[in-house]
Structure formats: structure tokens, C-alpha cells
Simulated assay, not measured.
Amino acid sequence: MSGWDNFKNILCIRPDNMGDLIMSGPALRKFKKGLNARITLLTSSMAAGITPFIPEIDEVIIFDLPWVKQANTERPDALFALVERLKKYHFDAAVIFTVYSQNPLPSAMIAYQAGISRVLAYCRENPYGLITDWVPDEEPFRYIDHQVDRDLKLVNHVCNVNVGKRLSLTVNETGWPEITEKLKQTGLDNGRPWLILHAGVSEIKRQFPEELWIETALQIISKGYQVLLTGSAGEKELVSRLQTQIGAGAFNAAGLFPIGQLITLISRASLLLSVNTGVTHISAAVGTPVVVLYAQTNPQHTPWMVPNTVIEFPVPDGLKSKNGVIRYVDDTIYANPAMMPEPAVITDHVIRLIRSSAVSGRQFHGTPHENQEL
């Protein structure tokens, strides 16, 4: 176990987005089961909201590190305060989770300054004393793993114990009556079939054209489904525009559900239709089928171990990343950009996935009218 078998106080650094953290869940589970360790997570304000629903996490430290794209940035002197705070925990070891396009060395420097003697991380170049348990990063130039497998393989270098690979979030079923009341406020009839359409994105390059969302929603409604439009409080304007243009059969729930209720809501939906953003990983974690309109950015982040359909669409040249590693993926994996998908194609995949999931035994709330297609 590389000397980690006696480590019981571990700092896990996952400083980016909610979806990234959800995909690290099985790796955190491996630490928890294999080492029986206390897990303290250092993460961003963007990911912090999901942490109460990941049972492996014992404590959370929220800090928006400046070397990760954030909505907010901390003052430079706050880094020194963070280091002093970390010192007080007397951590036995730290693990740094990254996407292959991220550099772990700034996070490793924080751990080094905090006096953490053992640090596990992928790194492309030799980190010398900054990363004691160094795993050379061969992605994406030799192969590409899904993010879940990438994180599990990293932890496997110090903790070789079998755990389930599925994503997992705590679902609060006792909150369903309150959610049902909120659904009534939107006008949605919970006795009839409904699905979720989530159009909001954290990065503009993943944005799907509004006119195609509208036409897709209209076609889904014509098949007998209500469309619940979800989004954050900051996405109310977008969702309102979509609901107005779609009209009858679409219901605006932007900003209505805090993260815990959103998890429960998604667990009850027939299907989630979204772009590649954090809610797709929530859906995978609660077992709800996903159709994802997947901007050709990072192929590591498709829905994991849940019935799904991935429909790729191109990223405009002006929005493509300047990161050299991502550019390599764009020039190889995405050398032939996908065509923008037609609403009829998206709708067909949605109906087919709901049908196949129903046949496999998944239970939904409400059923289509007999004269409407499923």
C-alpha cells in the first residue's frame, strides 16, 4: 500500500466544478473503505453545494484557487491564510484530483507549504519533492480514460481495495412532498409524464442554440410529455425565454429548487435532457436516464454507468480553448467536428431511451395518454 495503510487523516483536493467532484466520488469511496480514513475536501465555491450529499466527505474547506477557472477569485494574501489553516489539521497525506488538462503543481505547492509529507497526484513532468507519490500522466497522448476511471486508478496506487464504480449521491425522499407542491406552482401535472430539460451551462462554449432547444421541446411535448425547464437562479432569464417561446407544455422551474431538492427531483424524472454540465452527473448518480447534447470539449465526462445517449455538437472556433493539451484533443479526437443535431433526431433519442428504460424496469411518475406516442 506504499505506506498509506496507516494514514487516517487525508486531504483531498478537487478544486474545480460540481460535476468533477461527483465523478471523484468512487475514488473517495475507495479511500474511505480501504483506509478507514477521515476525508477532508478542499474544493471550490462552485462545487461546495453538492458536498453534503457525498457521504464519504467528513469535512469541507472552500477556497477558490486562482489556477482553476472560477466565478470568484480570492485575494493573494488569502493563500497564506489557507496554508496556515491546513497546517492545523496535521494531515497524514494529500491527493490531488485533476482533469488531464490541469497542472497539479500549484495545488501540490499548497500541500508542501502546509507540511503534508505525502502527496499523490498525476503530473506530466517530474515534480521532484512536491509530489512524493507521483503517477506520470499519459493522458490524453497515449489514451483517454473516463474521469471516474482516471481518479480510481490514481487512488489504486496507494489503496488497492475493490469498491463499486457507480456514482452516488444521497437522495432525500422525505422532501418529495414539498417538491411536489413547488411543481404544482409551475403548473406541471405530476400525474402525467414529464422530463427535465436543463439548458444552462457553466461555459459558453457548451451552449446549445436556443432555437434548437425550443423546437426540440415542442416535438417532445407533441409526444405526450411535459417539459420541466430547470436552471439556477442566475439562469432565470434564459429559462424564461425558452418557456415563453415553447408555450403550453413547458414549465419554468429556474431557481426554484435548492441542490438537495434538485437531486431528488432528478431522481423522479423520466429522463434528463441537458448539455454536458453538472446535472448530467447528478442524473447518473441517481440512476435517471440522460440524453446529453455534448459540446466537443472533453471526452472524459460523458454520463457514467447510467442509460444514456450522447449527441455531440461542435464548438465554434472562436470559443475553443487555448490550452495546448485540449488543443491536441481537438485536433485528433475532434478532428472532424460533428454536425449540429436536428431536433427530430434528439427527440427520437429521448423517446427511445425512455422506452428502453421502462422496459428494463425503471418506474416513472405518470404515463402517456393512450393516443400519444411513447
Rank of each mutant, 00 (worst) to 15 (best):
G255F: 11
K236M: 02
L79H: 15
I214K: 06
A233S: 04
V83H: 07
S117W: 03
Q243A: 08
P104V: 11
A81T: 07
I62D: 14
L11H: 07
F31K: 05
G3Q: 09
N190S: 12
S360C: 00
Q296P: 09
L188F: 02
A248I: 11
A217W: 06
P341W: 04
P343D: 15
P66C: 11
V286W: 05
F208R: 00
T347L: 06
I179E: 08
T332K: 11
N156A: 12
T264A: 11
M340G: 00
Q243I: 01
A284T: 02
P26G: 03
K87V: 14
R124Y: 12
Q245D: 02
N336Q: 12
F364I: 00
K165M: 07
S168M: 08
C12N: 04
K87T: 09
V306G: 14
P209G: 02
D20H: 03
K88D: 08
Q372M: 12
G260M: 11
T288M: 00
G249E: 03
W4Y: 05
G361S: 04
K322M: 14
T347Q: 08
G19T: 00
R124Q: 10
S168H: 09
I179N: 01
Y122E: 04
Y128A: 05
A47G: 08
T297P: 03
N190F: 01
N103Y: 06
V290S: 05
H90I: 09
G287M: 00
L353I: 02
L238A: 04
V60P: 15
I54A: 11
K69W: 11
D133F: 13
P66A: 09
A121G: 05
I333R: 14
L35A: 08
T347A: 06
I346E: 10
R352K: 11
I57P: 02
L242Y: 05
L265Q: 04
A27R: 04
S45D: 12
V329W: 14
V292T: 07
V171R: 09
G249T: 00
D189K: 07
L169M: 10
L86H: 13
V315W: 03
G187E: 02
V171D: 01
H369P: 05
A48H: 10
Y128C: 06
A269W: 01
L11S: 09
N103S: 15
K33G: 13
T216G: 00
